[in-house]
Computed example of a mutant assay.
Amino acid sequence: MTGTIVITGASAGIGRATAERFLQAGWNVALLARRDEVLKEICHGCPTALPVACDVTDLGAVEAAFDAAAGRFGRIDVLFNNAGVFPESGLIDEIAPESWSSAVAVNLTGMFNAARAAFARMRRQEPQGGRIINNGSISAHVPRPNSVAYTTTKHAITGLTKSLSLDGRPYDIACGQIDIGNARTELLEDVIERTLEADPLAEVPPTMDVSHVADAVLNMAELPLSANVQFMTLMATKMPYIGRG
């Protein structure tokens, strides 16, 4: 199966790797992110790629981006709801209120905005239906230390996934969640760097190649709408998830 996918946070990390994998597989891909120049570089010379500069915290910009994708490719088959940030680490009384607000704005409201835009178009297009894949996290289930803002927003995504999965049934809209642990991306590199700055003797966590995540998202997307991966956990084998909580 191929079709049209919208990917948020597509300029780096998991989003970029996934966009490139879907393009290789012959999909139409709308790449959404704030860094327009990076998106254009990724899409250069590819007729099935559409770069759209978009801040997911801006509902109007998100609506316009989905209109552009549907206008270019005719319909929206899949949303990979991926954009996210990892705010500063610390105890709840140590982190800045701005860090909390930023995490909620991107990780929760931004994912709500994208899901809202996708759901509306999937419900109204012919033939009706589509699939929303939310990027949760291992932290959607068990926290890392000193990550109250990130963990709280990612727990909320599990609720979003369940609600969309339930509400989408009458419209052939499937919703699943992929919970990723320690894919080697710029975001994880930043977390590791911060950890080592705080404690130079800290153990560097086990990681896995981000390409495995892209392959997994493609597998979820290529299922017929009669089947759904509700939750998938994909992580570095030796990372402390089992035993962490």
Results as ranks from 00 to 15, higher is better:
T237G: 12
T109L: 04
W100V: 02
L32V: 02
N182W: 13
T158A: 11
L223T: 04
T233C: 11
Q125C: 00
R144P: 07
S101L: 13
L59P: 03
D67S: 13
R116E: 02
Q230D: 14
K162D: 13
D93P: 02
A17M: 04
E41H: 09
A30R: 00
S139A: 15
D179R: 14
K154D: 00
G168H: 04
L218K: 09
C54T: 15
V52N: 08
T161C: 12
Q125L: 07
P143S: 01
I7Y: 00
R72S: 05
M232Y: 05
I192G: 03
E94Y: 11
F66P: 08
D172G: 04
M232K: 09
E193W: 12
D55M: 02
E189V: 08
K40Y: 03
A149T: 01
P127M: 11
V62K: 09
I192L: 08
M235P: 00
I42H: 09
A105C: 03
S163V: 15
A221M: 10
A183D: 06
P240A: 09
G159Y: 01
V78K: 11
R72Y: 10
Y241K: 13
C46D: 15
I173R: 11
R121M: 10
T158M: 14
E222C: 13
T8Y: 05
S11R: 05
A183I: 06
G84R: 01
L91I: 02
D36G: 12
S139D: 14
R144D: 15
Y150R: 08
E88V: 10
A96V: 01
I133V: 09
V142A: 15
I192C: 03
Q230P: 02
P51Q: 04
K238R: 10
G84V: 09
Q24N: 11
V210D: 12
V213W: 06
D58Q: 05
E37A: 15
D77I: 12
D199K: 10
R121F: 12
S211F: 00
L31Y: 06
Y150F: 15
T2A: 08
I192Y: 06
A149Y: 00
E222K: 14
T109W: 01
L188V: 10
Y241M: 13
R72T: 12
P200I: 06
G168S: 05
E126S: 10
N107C: 00
G136F: 00
D215C: 02
G84Q: 05
P224V: 05
E203Q: 14
G71C: 10
P170H: 08
H155F: 15
